[in-house]
Amino acid sequence: MKNQLDFEKPIYDLQNKLEELKRHPEAHSLGVSFDEEIKKIEAKIAETRKQVFSNLTAWQRVQLARHPKRPFTLDYLRSTFTDFSELHGDRLFAEDRAVVGGFARLGGQKVMVIGTQKGRDTKENILRNFGSAHPEGYRKALRLMRMADKFGLPIITLIDTAGAYPGIGAEERHIAEAIAVNLREMMLLEVPTMAVVIGEGGSGGALGIGVTDRVLILENAYYSVISPEGCAAILWKDRAAAPKAAEALKITAKDLLELRLVDEVVPEPLGGAHNDLATTAANLKKHLLGQLEQLEKLSVADRLKQRYGRFRAHGHYVEKQLAA
């Protein structure tokens, strides 16, 4: 089967066996029933899935976060959200399709949704630039956020990018500035803001739409200052040490929650988001609505104070050198 990860193989093998039995041509003619076997296999699948998915390593989660079948921003815009009305362009240079954004409804609430968008096949990936935004993407995001601020719409960003795009054009049009300005301006938006890392949270490219009142992360997503491969190449001098780097960098949802770098983990069904979009989308909706309700109770001043305080508190240091 295409698009399966190594550690998913036992599950897929069982699923194939199940399909085979169900389709067995002789089942009817012989009057034999495979019901018993089918039940057994189904139970085995559930058990195997539980076993595999309750003991995922950091590296396995990185692979899940990059799974080509994993739901992307537009998938959630069609499930968690309704009535998505896309708005294009940065009004300056181009339309960056690695970032999508526009009006949408979350339950009964009208909101602004902005997210990085990957492609599922080659054609789509070229259109979406593999989910890596140019400066135009970040500037479009800021334009939409400012408009949402003007009209009192809460802002929800969905993060799924390996990182901002490293290219000549991106440098010439100052991608660093586009991200930096977003970091500064997002701190002062008066409407409630929430970010969700739904897949890959790739460094500054992710943070560029991630300075929000609340930061949520899906159970199998990751958020990191550098890709595990990049870190491995520098600190281990070997890209193959990526699994070690993934462990050391503490990038999984669970680690980040423990370090209080994220506010909440949105659970995924066993087998991961790519096996059950409906449940994942429903979980996401529930968590977003819960957070939004809390945020809307706060005054603008309190919300801004808490937002700044939230990021201001990150960091560990000592004021005096400890006696050696």
């Binding site: 943070l207 503490k250 990021f311």
Partner: peptide, 9 residues
């Protein structure tokens, strides 16, 4: 790790 990234914000 992520604490470094947060210094940007």
């Amino acid at each position: 790790g992520m604490f470094s990234l947060m210094q940007m914000a």
